[in-house]
Design a protein around this nucleic acid. Structure first.
Lengths: 214, 214, 214, 214
DNA sequence: CATGAATGAGTCTTCATTCAT
DNA sequence: TATGAATGAAGACTCATTCAT
C-alpha cells in the first residue's frame, strides 16, 4: 500500500481512490466551492479534484444544487452533534455561552472551507432555494436560544430581552468575526480572545444582577 | 422627427439624459439583483426593468461586475453620509451606539433591496472580486470602532476589549437580525425593540462601571 | 453588390447573408435533417449551413423540436395551397385523382429534401410529439377523401368503400413509391409513369360501372 | 449459497441461459423501442425491462444499432415464413392478393409493437444505416411482385403496369392504413373491411378483363 | 449616445459503452 | 457469462458582450 502511494508521487495531491466516492466527491465539492463559490465552480473541477469522471458525480448527486445541499446537510449535522456534546459538559448556563462562542470560532478555523461555504453559499441558497430550509442550521442557532430561555427562567439572565433576538445577536456577533478571518488575508485576533471578548460582552449585558467588579 | 428633437432641446441640455439613464440602470439592477441574486440575474432583465436597451448598459458600466460594484459604491456612500450626520447629533458615546443600532436597522427596513444585495452579494464579491475592497463599507463599520475607541479613551467603556472585535461583534449582531427580517417571510420583532435590545446588551457589556440601577 | 459576391467565391456554397435569417435557418435545417435525420443532426451543423451562429437559431426558434415543427408547418402549408390550385383546374373527379397523383410525385421529386423529412421525421414526431397534430398534413390527405366522397355522391365511384379507407390507400400507394425514390439510389420509374399507373389502378378499381374497353 | 447453486444445476445445463437472455433482450427492446422510439430509448431501460444488467446486452449484441437490426432480421424472417405458408394455400393469384392484404393487416394488429418499430424505426435506419439492406423486408414485399408478375404471365392481370410499381402501391396502401391504426388512438375501420376494400380496389384495377358482375 | 440582433464561448448533463470483479 | 459502477465524449442551450446601424 505504502509502496503504491510512493510509486506515483504526482497522484498525491488527488484524493485516494480507495475512499467511498460519495465522500470523495463531497470533499472535493467543499474544497472547490469554498475556493471559488458555487456559481464559479464547474462540475468538471469537482470531478477532477475528486479524481472521478464528470459523469460519476451524477451517480451520487442529482445535480449541482443537490451537491451543495447535501454538503450542508451532512456537515451541519455533524457539527450540531459535536457542539451539543461539548455544551452538555456543564450545567452552568453562563459557561455554556462561553463554550458555544469558543466552539463556534474554533470549528470555523478548523473547518475553514465549510465555514466559507456556509457563510457565503448558504446565504444564497436561503434566498434562491426558498423551499429548502436547513433544519440543521436552525437547530444549531437554537442552542443559544435555549441557553437564554433557560437562564431567564432560572433568573440568571435578564427577563426583558427576547431570546429570539439574543440568539441572533450572539450568533451574528460571532459569525461576523468569523467572516473577517475567512475573508481577510490577515488574522489579527485569535479565536480564544475573540470568543472570550464576545461572550463576556453578552454575559455582562445579559446577567440579571450585574456583578460588582471583574 | 428632427423638429420634435428640436422641440425640447432645452430640456435635454439641462437634464442630461446620461445621468438619468445611469440612475435608472442602477435602480433596476438593485431591484433585480435583490430579487434574484447576482448570478441569477440576466443583463437583459436589468435592461428591461430600466427600460433601456441591453447594449446601453455597457455605455454606462464596464460589465456586470462593474454594475454590482458601482451599486455598492454609490449606495454605501450615501448611507455613510447620512449615518454620520445622525450620529453627530450627540456627543454621548453610549447614545451614539444606540443611534447606530437603530439607524442601521431602520435603513435596512427602508431600503430592503439594498440590504438584500449587500447581505448576500457583497459577501460573494468579497470573495470573488478579491481585488475590490469596499472602502465605503469599511468606513461604515468603523463608525462603531471609533465610538468604542473614544469611549475607552474617555473611560466610559472597558479597556480590556479590542475595538476591532467589538465593532464586528456589534455590526454582526445587528446584521444577523437584519438578515432574519430579510430572509424570513414572518417578521417577529420590530426594529426599535431589536435596536434597543441589542444596543443595551452591548452597552451593559461594555460599560466600565456597571450602573447599579435600570 | 455583385462585386462583393464575386469577391470571395468560397462563400458561394453558403446561403447568402442577405436573406431573412428565419428563412435561412429553416432552409438549412431542412437540408441537414433530410441528410442526417433529426436525431443525428446537430444544431451547430444547421447553424453552419445557415451561416449563422449557434445562438442565433434560438432567437428564431424555441428549440430543436420547434425547428422541425416549424418546418412542417410552413412547408406543408405551401404545398396544400399549390395542390389545391392545381386540382381546382378541373371538375372531373377522375381527372382530379390523376392530378393529385402526379402532383404529389412531382412535388416529391422537386422538393426531395422536404419529402425525406416528412417521410421519416414526421412519422417520428407523430409518435413522440403526440400533442402535435399536423393540421396541414391532414388537410392535404383529405383532398383525396373529398374527391372520393364527391364521386360517390355523384355516382361516379362505387358506393361500397369508405372514403376514409381509400384516401389512405391512395396516399399510401403514392407515398410508398416516393419512399422508394428517396431511399433508393437507383430510380427505376419516372413520376409520370408511376402516377399514371397508380391512379389508373385506383380509378379502375373505384369506378361504379367498369368501362368495357381501354 | 453454493448449495443452492448446485441444487438446480441440471436445469441450468439443459436450458442454456444464453439463448434465454438473447430472447428476453430482444423482446424487451421491441417493447421499449415501440413505446419510445429508437432514439428515445435508453439501453438501461431495455436492460431493466429484460431483467438483465446493462452490460449483459453487450454480450449478445454489438451495440444499440445491432440490437435494432437483429430485431428486424429475426422478426421479419418469421413473418415472411408464415406469410409464405398462408399464401401457398391457394394457387388463385387473385386470392393470394386478398390473403396478403388480410395477412398483413392482421399481423400488424397482432404484433402491434413490431409494426410500430418497423413503420417508424426501419424507415430511419433505411436512411441512416445505409449499409444495411433488410433482405427480409425485400423478400416480404416481393411476394406481391411475384403475384403480379405471374398474373401478368398467365393473362390474369393487365400487362401494362410494372409489377415493381404495383408491389409498392399495394404494400403502401396497406401500410398507410396500418399506420393510421398504430398512430391514431381511435380505430375506425377493422382489418377485414380494410383488407377487403383495398385488395378489391387493386384487383379490379388490375384485372385484364373487368368482370361484369359484383 | 442608443439600439437590439447577432455572436460563440462555455457548461451542465446524458448515456452508450467498457471493464474490473 | 454476468454485473453495474464508472467513464468521458458529445451536444443543446444560455447569456454576457459586441457592433453595425
Amino acid at each position: 500500500m505504502r509502496e503504491q502511494e510512493n510509486f506515483n508521487q504526482e497522484e498525491k495531491e488527488k484524493l485516494p481512490r480507495g475512499i467511498d466516492k460519495h465522500e470523495r466527491i463531497l470533499k472535493a465539492a467543499l474544497k472547490v466551492f469554498a475556493e471559488k463559490g458555487f456559481y464559479n465552480t464547474r462540475i468538471s473541477e469537482i470531478a477532477k479534484e475528486a479524481n472521478v469522471a464528470d459523469g460519476t458525480i451524477y451517480l451520487y448527486f442529482k445535480n449541482k444544487d443537490d451537491l451543495l445541499i447535501s454538503l450542508f446537510e451532512e456537515e451541519i449535522g455533524k457539527i450540531c452533534q459535536s457542539m451539543r456534546e461539548e455544551m452538555n459538559k456543564t450545567d452552568d448556563l453562563v459557561e455554556k455561552l462561553r463554550i458555544f462562542a469558543l466552539g463556534h470560532l474554533n470549528r470555523i478555523l478548523k473547518n475553514r472551507e465549510l465555514a466559507e461555504v456556509i457563510q457565503v453559499e448558504l446565504r444564497q441558497s436561503a434566498k434562491f432555494m426558498r423551499e429548502y430550509v436547513n433544519k440543521g442550521f436552525v437547530e444549531y442557532i437554537n442552542f443559544v436560544r435555549e441557553i437564554i430561555r433557560e437562564g431567564q427562567e432560572k433568573g440568571v439572565f435578564r427577563n426583558d430581552v427576547a431570546p429570539g433576538i439574543v440568539k441572533r445577536a450572539f450568533y451574528g456577533a460571532l459569525d461576523e468575526m468569523a467572516r473577517y478571518w475567512i475573508l481577510s488575508p490577515i488574522k489579527k485576533y485569535n479565536p480564544i480572545d475573540c470568543a472570550k471578548a464576545i461572550s463576556e460582552i453578552f454575559i455582562r449585558g445579559l446577567l440579571a444582577k450585574p456583578q460588582g467588579n471583574e
